[in-house]
């Protein structure tokens, strides 16, 4: 936004010589005796040459300015990319540190265990952390794969897919203490069949729903619903959870991002990033709205025809 404002102001610059010329002209005109007529004469060949020099200079200056602007834009992009990369590495470092610390402590407990029970507990905790690292690596690979992976497009019955996702979410232990509601339109017509990779779409919707399960508490309500207009299907997951801080809201789709309120929750921190990547690869869009204290609404829009 900042950039756009600067570039529109720049167009006022050509006005400066214009205004200066007009001012000088007015001044000379007012002093009638100081306003002599000036004749310029020269050979046509010289005029042609001078004109050529003038145009060449104009072109050179134009090109130089264009180059400079492009370089600036490039630097800005690469700086943003470098910053993204640094941020990602910092988060990755953080995500690796905790399980590794737990593993080190667990191994110390294994070697110091005095009875079988203590040893089994320690081994179990190490195994859990190893699984966590394994899931992180698997999700990172998925994210990297999504860029290049060839999608297996086939007709997908969205209503059936959403029912399946809902059934799987309901089978999660957290689901027992929350009210889960699913609403899929049947009248006047059912949701359209869309063209897509069913397994990936399943993963995308499930990740959003799983996220809602993770961040809500006992007694909260989670709704999975869908709607369509002729060109798009809208899939929404709404929850009455704690909501997301406005400062964190634009980052929820970032890889490994954890907002203040999301520290200490399980998961690789890649679920929503994966969901977004999948929806984008299907030509769709994602959005999130949230009110702290009221809840969060995540929406996925998918084109009906590709």
């Amino acid at each position: 936004m900042n950039n756009r404002r600067r570039s529109s102001w720049r167009w006022l610059l050509p006005l400066a010589p214009l205004l200066a010329g007009a001012g000088l002209s007015l001044l000379l005109y007012s002093l009638a005796d100081r306003n002599p007529t000036v004749y310029l004469s020269g050979q046509l060949s010289a005029v042609a040459f001078a004109l050529g020099v003038f145009l060449a200079l104009l072109l050179a200056v134009g090109l130089a300015i264009g180059d400079w602007a492009a370089r600036r834009a490039e630097t800005a992009v690469s700086q943003a990319a470098a910053q993204d990369r640094r941020r990602f590495l910092r988060r990755l470092d953080h995500e690796l540190k905790n399980p590794l610390t737990a593993i080190l402590a667990g191994l110390a407990n294994v070697s110091a265990a005095e009875d079988d029970d203590a040893r089994a507990t320690a081994v179990h905790s190490v195994t859990t952390q190893v699984q966590r690292l394994r899931q992180l690596v698997a999700d990172l690979r998925k994210l990297a794969d999504l860029e290049t992976r060839e999608l297996e497009y086939a007709p997908v019955n969205l209503a059936a897919l959403l029912e399946d996702v809902f059934a799987l979410a309901q089978a999660q232990p957290e689901a027992d203490q929350r009210t889960l509601v699913v609403s899929i339109p049947r009248a006047p017509w059912p949701l359209p069949t869309i063209s897509g990779d069913r397994d990936l779409l399943f993963l995308a919707v499930y990740n959003v729903l799983d996220n809602a399960l993770k961040f809500t508490q006992t007694g909260d309500t989670i709704e999975l619903r869908a709607a369509e207009d002729d060109s798009r299907v809208l899939i929404e997951v709404g929850d009455t959870g704690p909501g997301i801080d406005p400062a964190d809201l634009e980052h929820v789709w970032d890889e490994l991002y954890r907002g203040e309120g999301a520290r200490g929750f399980p998961g690789s921190g890649l679920g929503l990033a994966l969901a977004r990547a999948i929806v984008l690869r299907h030509g769709g869009q994602t959005a999130v709205r949230s009110r702290p204290g009221q809840g969060t609404l995540v929406s996925l829009r998918l084109p009906v025809r590709r």
Binding site: A138, K142, D145, L168, R198, D199, F202, Y206, N207, D210
Partner: peptide, 12 residues
């Protein structure tokens, strides 16, 4: 075959 694990993978 899939190259990935999926939440409902075994059903797939």
């Amino acid at each position: 075959v899939w190259g990935w694990d999926y939440p409902a993978g075994t059903r797939a």
